[in-house]
Amino acid sequence: MDIFFVLTNAITVACIYGLIAIAVSITWSSLGLINLAYGFVFTFAGYGAWLVAQHINDHPALIAAAGIAMGAAAGVLVCLVVFIPLHDKPNFTTRGMIATLAISLIGSQSFLMFFGPRPKSLPELFGFWTLDLFGVRLTSDKIGIVVCSALMLFLVVRWMRGSRRGLEIRAMMMNPHAASIVGIGIRSTGIYVMAVTGAMGGLASVLLSQTYYIAPFNGLTPLIKGVSIALCGGLGSVQGAVIAAILLGLVEALTNEFLGGQYVLMTQFLFIIAVLVVRPRGISGLLDKAREQ
């Protein structure tokens, strides 16, 4: 097997999972909510994009926009159902986590009821063409996935750095109590955060469906991978998540090359455990309490 082929594969997949990891990371650090409903957001956006492709138009831009919009809608839904009623209640972190898990359970069962167990596939978004870069053959979908996720990440980071809302979110990340004292609404910020992170999940869903199918229970693997990357990089840190995504992609590629595909999860988890034992709050997480909740 060609190492470059494996490497490009790993980078492509890492881009998608990295999007979810960053979404998990931003949600945790700004809202204090461990959102395990990204699997639901993921599937919701996938089915939304599929419905648009089936019934309206299968123009790639429209499908991608539909996926992003549906992801944002699912994120807002989770925010309305879980974050807003629970954020000032006792045991918020545990209850929030269990509530998001409940949403993912309800969500996957509803998808099963409405759409049936048969997987659905989205049309190709990026066409069929290849690019020869320094002797490495890159297919259109890989380039498209990398470019799209990088663009999304760039836009989100830009928005968080440059806009008023982004300033509010960053203030919430630093100190939620002080942020609420100076007049930043926790609930409204919650809705922005969940909409943006949901949009990231929705884009990841559309991108991943270039490789895999959309099925009721398919949100789980991206969720677990995303959460692992977020953990490894340090919850609350965007650059940590990027580093972790690249490192875990490398581990996956190397394992595939030298040990074999069935050991990928094992080596990845050993790697994560090793990282966490050395740095309990991830690669670039702060060592002290990052968030008082």
């Binding site: 461990i34 395990l36 972190t93 986590m97 789980l220 693997t221 677990i224 959460v227 692992s228 977020a230 953990l231 919850l235 999860l265 094992m266 988890f269 994560i272 455990i273 966490l276 309990p280 709050r281 991830g282």
Partner: peptide, 14 residues
């Protein structure tokens, strides 16, 4: 706390 919860969730999948 939750770092451990997420890690064990991954272990389960593993």
């Amino acid at each position: 706390g939750f770092y451990y919860a997420l890690l064990t969730l991954g272990l389960n999948e593993l």
